[in-house]
Design a protein around this nucleic acid. Structure first.
Lengths: 160, 160
DNA sequence: TAATTCACTTGCAAAATGCAAGCTAACTCG
DNA sequence: CGAGTTAGCTTGCATTTTGCAAGTGAATTA
């Protein structure tokens, strides 16, 4: 397999590389679903609420597999189904995801409750440990349920 | 001011909201330049190495201003020039940026040296404190210099 | 065996992006 | 003062990516 030459101008900046991997509107949502909602299948991502188009979903899954952020294995029970799962490289994005969540919850109007974010922010390590534990043990019980669309919203003062 | 209605399907999920703010290839690079390189002007962003098109740059700056992640103030010395600066909401993205940097440095081939990332990872709080300090004091000396394009690369084993 | 489900493709219109060129108000230099 | 230069954009246009609807084929269920 030839490497992507990409017309895109690359630098060795880590932030830049990260953005090349998942710097679009959908990749991180897929990773979120895998990480905190226990989703595994194409269908689950598709119905996740944000309404990703199937062609884009297919394309993103392929890219993430290519970059070894997720794996795709055929389901043992159902021959049609594929189970996607984060790799260790993928689950290592947990701190990024957590900080993203905390930032938005503190600075934007979101459906995350204050108490919830308080806990996240106070016990980062515990939240992360639990996330890693579920990943290792293939525990699919969601850490976060899907958030409802914005109706009643709340906001909190940032910590600093 | 009317709120953006946006055809885009929104949920109240914080991660989703974050992605709406800077989930594209360029916004976070602008934020990086403001945060760790001490850049302030249009011209500086334009020449930052990754080669953003001026129309896109203009558009992203406007969006970031609209969402109060950055401010734009006319330069006192030069009437043509505009100084962009992170707001407190913007500088609060420092932990996200740091985790992004650490992840890529650990899991992708980047120009960040091992020693450098080791320090970042070990002393997150100190790195963040220094970042906030520079922001508060308007200290423009860069924390990170621009990384060279990828030639010699190194990789490290992830911590966990 | 027929219908349904899953994980995709395909085709096409609409939007975003990349690229080059232009444009205007401020500067600088002589 | 006037000619050039610079900063920060905007415009036009071709290319790429996206969103949306409608398939497709293999596996499963009724």
């Amino acid at each position: 397999m030839a490497r992507k030459p990409k017309t895109r101008s690359r630098t060795g900046c880590p932030v830049c590389v990260s953005l090349e991997r998942f710097g679009d509107r959908w990749s991180l949502l897929i990773i979120r679903d895998l990480m905190v909602r226990g989703y595994r299948t194409f269908r689950e991502f598709q119905n996740a609420g944000e309404g990703i188009a199937t062609n884009v979903l297919s394309n993103r899954l392929r890219k993430l597999v290519a970059h070894e952020i997720i794996t795709a294995v055929p389901s043992a029970e159902d021959g049609r189904s594929v189970h996607y799962r984060l790799t260790s490289k993928g689950i290592a994005l947990a701190p990024v995801m957590l900080e993203l969540l905390i930032w938005a919850a503190r600075h934007e109007e979101t459906a995350a409750s204050c108490a919830f974010v308080d806990r996240m922010e106070k016990d980062r390590e515990a939240v992360l440990a639990e996330t890693y534990r579920r990943w290792e043990q293939r525990d699919l019980t969601p850490i976060l349920p899907p958030f409802p669309p914005p109706t009643q919203v709340q906001r909190r003062k940032p910590t600093r």
